[in-house]
Write a protein that binds this DNA or RNA. Structure first.
Ligand SMILES: [Zn+2]
Ligand SMILES: [Zn+2]
Ligand SMILES: [Zn+2]
Ligand SMILES: [Zn+2]
Lengths: 161, 161
DNA sequence: GCCACAAATGAGACCGAGTATCAAGTCCGA
DNA sequence: TCGGACTTGATACTCGGTCTCATTTGTGGC
């Protein structure tokens, strides 16, 4: 079921704020909604524009601040697109994972770390470095986009956007 | 002429330029030298500053253009530091690999892809995405920095800055 | 060497993302 | 309700990077 626009995703984000002791102000709620409403990745500018569209005033700085906050709570994560620009994706704050991003539509899937952890350990051992963090980013074409591209319009039906 | 400073690394870069049909102009040679002379990672601004120091005039745009060129030849690679800022590292143009970067001194090691390729394949198969590229970046402390940090001053002697 | 043309360069305007400042507004607990 | 802490928006600013365009430099053919 779907309680209209503000998904429980929104609520989850708001809860994360409260739990961490931050005020859940109207502005932050708005950002939470906007974030939750995106498939794929988004930039601060995206949110700003969409935000302005449905509510008149939200300051640029406020959006940046909210995103920074959400990022610190691991509710969103910063992504470095191959183009060199930055974007965000919502993500699960509870488990270390990585992102697989459709370079066509921007949709993003979480990918469990899996064996990578072992691999990283190995690299650390072999190199003598003490590895503190790592980042894996995967880019490709998602099934829907692939289907759309091959022109087999029929199959596009079975896939949810 | 002073062949001491310009390592064969420099020459390798210059050759790569020629091979790809680009002019090896004095400016580009300069950038090649500067790039070759860095351990660790560097930014365009770094190069610019060092460049200006030893030769009066090299335009900002020129440095950016040269780096862009070298990046397209895979002679350098763009890195996204955890801070969100961009840097470059020299790297082997002939084999796909990743980078392990010391977050203290900036030194960087190439890391072979190894089993990662298989892992990436798996992820593609499981997710249905057709994966086109991936990026793995590892951050940690290099052995010299670790040694220096533990305060064993004795060992610091044996390490080059 | 000389010439014509292509490639490269530098200065500076420009742009967009992100940050800093600061005064004004809002929230919350006592 | 009151006061202090937190939040906000406008604005100025920084900084990495790009664009433009007039000038310079390199190259290949003669
Ligand atoms: Zn897609
Ligand atoms: Zn991982
Ligand atoms: Zn180090
Ligand atoms: Zn790889």
């Amino acid at each position: 079921m779907r309680p209209s626009i503000k998904s429980d995703q929104t609520e989850r984000i708001v809860q994360a704020l409260k739990r961490a002791g931050y005020q859940a102000t109207p502005n932050r709620r708005l950002v939470a909604e906007l974030v939750a409403a995106t498939g794929g990745h988004f930039t601060a500018a995206d949110l700003l524009e969409r935000g302005r569209r449905e509510r008149v005033n939200i300051g640029r700085a406020t959006v940046f601040r909210a995103l920074e906050l959400l990022a610190s709570l691991r509710v969103v994560e910063r992504l470095d697109l191959p183009s060199g620009s930055h974007a965000y994706v919502v993500c699960d704050p509870d488990a270390h994972h990585h992102h697989l991003v459709c370079s066509n539509c921007g949709k993003s899937e979480d990918v469990a770390d899996g064996e990578l952890a072992r691999l990283v350990d190995d690299i650390g051992r072999r190199s003598g470095y003490s590895i503190e963090s790592h980042r894996l980013e995967l880019f490709g074409t998602c099934p829907s986009c692939a289907a759309a591209a091959t022109g087999t319009v029929a199959t596009a039906r079975g896939v949810q956007a």
